[in-house]
Simulated assay, not measured.
Amino acid sequence: MAAPNVNVPADAPEHCPGTESSDAGKVSACAGCPNQQICASGETQAPDPAIEVIKGRMSSVKHKILVLSGKGGVGKSTFTSHLAHGIAHDDTKQVAVLDIDICGPSIPKIMGIEGEQVHQSGSGWSPVYVEDNLGVMSVGFLLGSPNDAVIWRGPKKNGLIKQFLRDVDWGDVDYLVVDTPPGTSDEHEVSLQDVRKEISFCRKVKLPVIGVVENMSGFVCPNCKTESQVFPPTTGGAEKMSIDMDVPFLGKLPLDPRIGKSCDEGKSFLSEVPDSPATQAYKQIIEKIQDFCTGSQLMET
């Protein structure tokens, strides 16, 4: 386990001593790490000067929420957009969405602002606004067409994400919801394993885990509102995994075909179908997330 306040690279192996440790690059945990040679030489890279600028920019954001998944196609962008819509329903809250899914930016379409352009002012890039209290930034706004492909890798993708954090004028924001890139695994039966990896990653970099959401957990008939289990859990599902890993379980979001329809039309499902069981499930989960954020703020003060 790395010592407190030691710089541990995100791609470091388990039990990395950290770049500032006297054991950097010299212990068994360092074997095979791409950073081993430079760590052992003591010539670790100087801190990125952009980090302090980003800290200053992000200081006006009260709560930063990352929506993570271990694989693609699990409804992460859909959840991100409806989390933002749900919080922004309270017009006293200023909400922003940052879409850093560089290769597959779907947030502009889901939130009904596809084809919009980013404008630049003296204070930086201006987000595109869905509502007066709901702004969005996405690489999708920088493409000439929704059909354009982004095939960037590593440094270029990281550079754009850094630019979004550094140069976007978010203003005073209560909640910044970040839609992150998915994992790459395609085997559906190991989806819980992917989530476990995400939780382990968050703990490794000391990122608080708000909780786990089980998306598309059952099918809700739009007419009779009866829920059917399409993929019944064989190992206890996300709820048991949350207990095993000692993380909060925020709830289950059922399948409702009208969710996809709302996303295709760029509308909020929560407003379009307020009486759906899925809408009620969304609201309960959003309330738990806000309770966590405000509770964390009280503990810090």
Rank of each mutant, 00 (worst) to 15 (best):
P4I: 13
N5H: 15
E14K: 13
C33L: 05
E43G: 07
D48P: 02
E52V: 09
E52L: 11
K55E: 03
G56Q: 08
R57L: 00
S59W: 03
G72S: 09
G75R: 04
D90S: 02
Q94G: 06
D101G: 02
I102V: 09
I107D: 05
G112T: 12
I113R: 07
E114K: 07
G124Y: 05
P127A: 00
V139D: 00
V139E: 01
L142S: 07
P146A: 05
G154T: 01
K156Q: 00
K157M: 07
N158K: 03
Q163W: 02
R166L: 08
V173F: 01
D174V: 11
V178W: 06
D179W: 03
T180R: 07
P182M: 11
V190C: 06
S200D: 13
R203F: 02
L207M: 15
V212E: 02
G218M: 14
G218I: 04
G218N: 14
T226E: 15
V230K: 12
I243A: 15
D244S: 09
M245I: 04
D246S: 09
D246E: 08
P248T: 08
F249M: 05
G260T: 14
G260P: 04
K261T: 10
C263D: 09
L270A: 04
V273M: 11
V273Q: 11
I285L: 10
I289E: 12
D291A: 15
T294D: 14
G295K: 13
Q297M: 04
Q297F: 03
